[in-house]
Nucleic acid binder design. Structure first.
Lengths: 267, 267
DNA sequence: AACGACGGTTCAATAAATGAACCGCAACAA
DNA sequence: TTGTTGCGGTTCATTTATTGAACCGTCGTT
């Protein structure tokens, strides 16, 4: 791992619950020498990727990120495009929909949309990081990722988020086979209690899986009818979002969804 | 300059007109060795700050920026806050308003807002880079920056954007003195023909100038009345935005605006 | 006044970045 | 077909930049 990666890794310690971090704490968290962290942060500071705030000179993510993400959005309007498709999804399902994308070995929620149909709903956080093994999105991504990536994820310790989380790599690998057969992944209370989610993969131009689109509902509401509606809508949405990102579905996924979507919707 | 800075500098070559750049071109632009650029881009790639696209594997800004800027926005909601103040500005002036922030030695437009009052209006681009010497925002920032920074900017070649652009560093330094006397900067057709803009500085917690807030109108509409209304609104807005970003105005600016705003508005 | 934790700095030791040359490939021209 | 050019990506000896223990001054607590 190069110096640049070490420096950039420091950015990962900033999240919703830890927005401002001091030098010493950053050194502790990253396990690196304080002087090293200081120099890295200074370089990030010069580029506006972080800024220092307050009398104790804590670091937080910087203003340059706003500019860069604007440019990113101009170059690849994924956010805007995603939003529309997610909205269409929760019109059809009356449930929460979200899009997540692979970033390194993490899976980040990059956009989500709520339905106002029900008083209760599954809620999301901005820029939430979700796990691969315990969410439908993560499983959908894994199922359509290359073996090397699967191994990398599944060889790490798998957090048991709830009493229902499946953490046995062998069982997960079996599930991935079934997901490829069905074209979509399901997770019931694996990441959060009482959340039933269904997800389909999203692909890039090289037909690599780069993320997933999902619908999440309270367990009680996710009955057979809603499942059918959701899966149908998700298949279409995953193809659309893949296309709008300039990607193409994996060949088997393309064939599978082609078959499913050509037959009339029913149980 | 460290390795990290070199790598991060590569991100600066991506802008609105150059959204996708190949390895060779990036090496040429940055004047660095191709292998070096390749390794740096690979590291940025791993962190999702850039991504590769197309058969020619060109680079463009990556999806991680969306996540990071979401987190930045959660930690320091400057964008959201700015928007409201900018909207208030164009309610008062019926003209385009925008906020720009220093990033390194660049000045970036981070937010803008249009008024729907007139059929014609000054338009902006997302993440536009504006020059220091030929815009009211740039001049306002320079006027309230430390001498070292002024020297750095004014010693570079100053682009003559229009027939009216002032590029003589001596004249510009005289202007900066007047700007500090008046508390606001003006630019008439210096950056774009037919645009008259007025700007006030914005400060951080250390009372350093970190950006400017401006109103821009077609030259013909910027009459004495509108100027008065605009300046009054800008003084208030610059203090508000400074405060909302956790900053404090420079002592002289604080005193100046205090005097101006305590006297009744008139010509 | 002594203590510990903080942000920031130093400098010899060393591990990491570097770049010329290279590979294979694709597009194009003769 | 053959030769050329420019591309993305890779190699490895050279060297340059990164590293971390120890340090400084400051601040709040004891």
């Amino acid at each position: 791992m190069g110096t640049v990666s070490k420096a950039l890794s420091l950015l990962n310690y900033f999240n919703l619950s830890r927005q401002e971090i001091g030098l010493a704490e950053l050194a502790r968290l990253s396990g690196q020498n304080k002087a090293t962290v200081y120099r890295h942060m200074t370089e990030l500071l010069e580029h506006g990727l972080v800024e220092q705030v307050g009398s104790d000179r804590q670091y937080r993510l910087g203003p340059a990120l706003i500019k860069l993400s604007s440019l990113r959005e101009a170059a690849a309007p994924t956010r805007e495009v995603s939003k529309k498709i997610l909205q269409m999804l929760n019109e059809k399902t009356c449930e929460t929909s979200h899009l997540s994308m692979i970033a390194g070995t993490q899976l980040n929620v990059t956009a989500y949309s709520y339905s106002s149909r029900h008083g209760t709903r599954v809620t999301m956080e901005d820029a939430e990081v979700i796990s691969f093994h315990s969410t439908s999105s993560g499983l959908a991504v894994l199922a359509y990722s290359e073996a090397h990536f699967q191994d990398q994820i599944l060889s790490r310790p798998l957090e048991k988020r709830t009493a229902f989380t499946i953490t046995d790599p062998t069982k997960i690998r079996d599930m991935l086979d079934r997901i490829r057969d069905q074209g979509c992944a399901e997770s019931v209370s694996g990441f959060e209690e009482d959340v039933h989610s269904i997800a389909c993969p999203v692909f890039n131009a090289a037909r690599d899986c780069i993320g997933a689109i999902a619908v999440a509902a309270p367990v009680a509401r996710m009955n057979t009818d809603l499942k059918d509606i959701t899966k149908d809508a998700l298949f279409k949405a995953s193809l659309e979002i893949t296309q709008l990102m300039g990607g193409f579905p994996a060949h088997d996924y393309e064939a599978l969804t082609g078959r499913i979507l050509s037959t009339p919707l029913s149980g």
